[in-house]
């Protein structure tokens, strides 16, 4: 079995994986990082979004071996200790969640979106979150949360 070496949430990780193991399975099953969810199994719903070298990636669309040498951040690595990341705080504050299953992926996509758009507009958010499905909220509060979170990230 191939060995992969990567940095996950700031910690060096080495793991033996099957060549066909997906990044999401490595994270969930071998590293116990279950905040990254599997919603559709087919790289469409976005519940499994993580950051790989600073870019948002659907962790079920990437093989673990493809992440070799990368820096991976999952939802568990976003907060600093007990202090929530501004985007996490915005989702909480603006009720941008209901069942919560899409939330980790949504937050990870939103952080990346905010980093890439210094002046994020509502239209940018709606287009930028197209790859993240939510069945509960109707997106309204999520969009508000992302706009507020992006603003807080600039401060």
């Amino acid at each position: 079995m191939p060995t992969v070496n990567l940095t996950v949430n700031g910690k060096a990780v080495s793991a033996n994986v099957e060549a066909r193991t997906l990044l999401v399975n490595l994270l969930r099953e071998q590293l116990g990082l279950t905040g990254t969810h599997v919603g559709c199994d087919t790289s469409q719903c976005g519940a499994c979004v993580v950051h790989v070298d600073g870019k948002s990636v659907k962790a079920c669309t990437l093989l673990a071996v493809q992440a070799n040498g990368s820096k991976v951040t999952t939802i568990e690595g976003l907060a600093s200790g007990d202090k929530l990341h501004p985007m996490q705080e915005a989702f909480r504050e603006h009720h941008g969640l209901q069942c919560g299953f899409c939330t980790p992926g949504m937050v990870m996509s939103a952080v990346c979106l905010a980093q890439n758009h210094p002046n994020l507009t509502e239209k940018d958010v709606r287009e930028g979150l197209e790859g993240n499905l939510c069945r509960c909220t109707g997106y309204h509060n999520i969009v508000q949360a992302v706009l507020a979170g992006a603003q807080a990230m600039r401060r």
């Binding site: 969930r28 990082l33 279950t34 905040g35 990254t36 969810h37 599997v38 999952t74 939802i75 568990e76 976003l78 907060a79 929530l84 996490q88 705080e89 989702f91 909480r92 009720h95 969640l97 919560g100 299953f101 939330t103 980790p104 937050v107």
Partner: peptide, 14 residues
């Protein structure tokens, strides 16, 4: 809410 935004709220598969 905090569990959901931090990924610490557990679903059955977690």
């Amino acid at each position: 809410a905090i569990g959901h935004v931090t990924g610490s709220a557990l679903y059955l598969d977690d």
